[in-house]
Amino acid sequence: MNTQANTAMSQEAPPPSADARVAARDWPATTAELDDYGCAVLEKLLTPQECRDFAALYAREEHFRSHIEMARHGFGKGEYRYFRYPLPELLDGLRTALYARLAPIANAWNERLNVAMRYPAGHADFLRLCHESGQTRPTPLLLQYVAGDFNCLHQDLYGELAFPLQVAILLSEPGRDFTGGEFVLTEQRPRMQSRAEVVPLRQGDAVVFAVHNRPVNGTKGAYRVNLRHGVSRLRSGRRQTLGIIFHDAR
């Protein structure tokens, strides 16, 4: 009887907090992957139910400040909506917890590249810098693609202050909800051919990746390589993604 009761309680236990689930990740391994490839996967950052809950918000306009149709701006095909403040609690918690783990990586990259900017340890302090620079609009977003849609290779830079890493969480399940639609990252090194990285994701997985550039070690020290990211053509179904950008926009 006690065993059954304990099992029922275990099944009903809520998911860990944003802080707990982020803290539980292998950050030394994640740091190494980011240093080597410019991206790293955090598996099962969201539960399937949380993915469905976020995806369902797309139809509720009260959560968003703007709606963008990519084709109108030459961004590709598909659409996305920027959240308004206040953000949903879990999204706000993940943005804060992930920033705290990524800020030391960003600072180490800037040090290697001899860039003076150092990011504060806490996300609230970084947002304060953004707002003092006139960047006050929230940047987390929900993206939606249907068959034939794609996202051109791009960089998400919204002002003078741009955090060099961001996160995308896949809310849909490949093979069940959609086919195609792979996350793609390209890296262009000086005097070399571009390198492409296709990142396989499952529902609830997050990919952390470089927004603009990152350091790569060369014979004369670290040098800067530029990166762009996008989504390949969706073959069928619908693909939804939660994007977490850490700097605010003008």
Rank of each mutant, 00 (worst) to 15 (best):
P48K: 05
L57A: 13
E160W: 01
R233L: 09
W109Q: 06
C51R: 00
W27F: 00
D19P: 00
G122Q: 15
N2D: 12
S172R: 10
A24M: 08
T96P: 07
T7E: 11
D19C: 04
L227R: 12
A5P: 06
L94D: 01
P48C: 04
R112H: 12
D35V: 11
R65W: 13
S194E: 08
E132W: 05
E160Q: 09
F54K: 02
Y80N: 06
L42K: 02
E111K: 14
M1R: 10
F163T: 03
L142N: 03
S172C: 11
E89D: 13
S66V: 08
R239Y: 02
G181M: 03
R95V: 05
L141M: 14
V199A: 03
R25M: 08
L98I: 12
Y158H: 02
L129E: 15
I244T: 00
E69M: 10
V207K: 10
H229K: 13
G230I: 03
T179S: 12
M70E: 07
M70N: 03
P174H: 03
N213A: 15
R189N: 12
A210E: 07
T3E: 13
R112Y: 07
D26K: 09
R214F: 10
M192E: 14
L201V: 05
A13V: 10
L242F: 02
V208T: 13
G175R: 05
Y58L: 02
L165K: 08
A29K: 09
E12G: 05
V225M: 11
P174W: 01
R224D: 14
S10A: 14
F178P: 07
L94A: 07
P215N: 06
P48W: 06
R214G: 11
R195K: 15
L34Y: 07
H154R: 07
G134W: 01
A196L: 07
A206N: 14
R195Y: 11
G237E: 09
D92M: 04
L34C: 11
L46C: 08
R235Y: 03
T136V: 11
E69F: 04
L90D: 08
H63C: 02
P86S: 11
L153K: 08
A24W: 05
L141A: 11
F246S: 00
L34N: 07
D177H: 07
S232T: 15
R233G: 07
R52E: 14
H247I: 00
F209H: 09
N226Y: 10
R238I: 04
L170V: 02
A13Y: 00
G218H: 03
R72I: 09
P15Q: 11
F83K: 08
V208F: 06
T47M: 12
Y85A: 15
F54Y: 12
T47I: 10
S172Y: 03
F75M: 03
M117S: 14
G148E: 05
P190W: 02
Y99E: 00
L46K: 04
E182A: 10
Y82H: 03
R95P: 07
H212F: 05
K77H: 13
R101W: 00
V41T: 11
L91C: 13
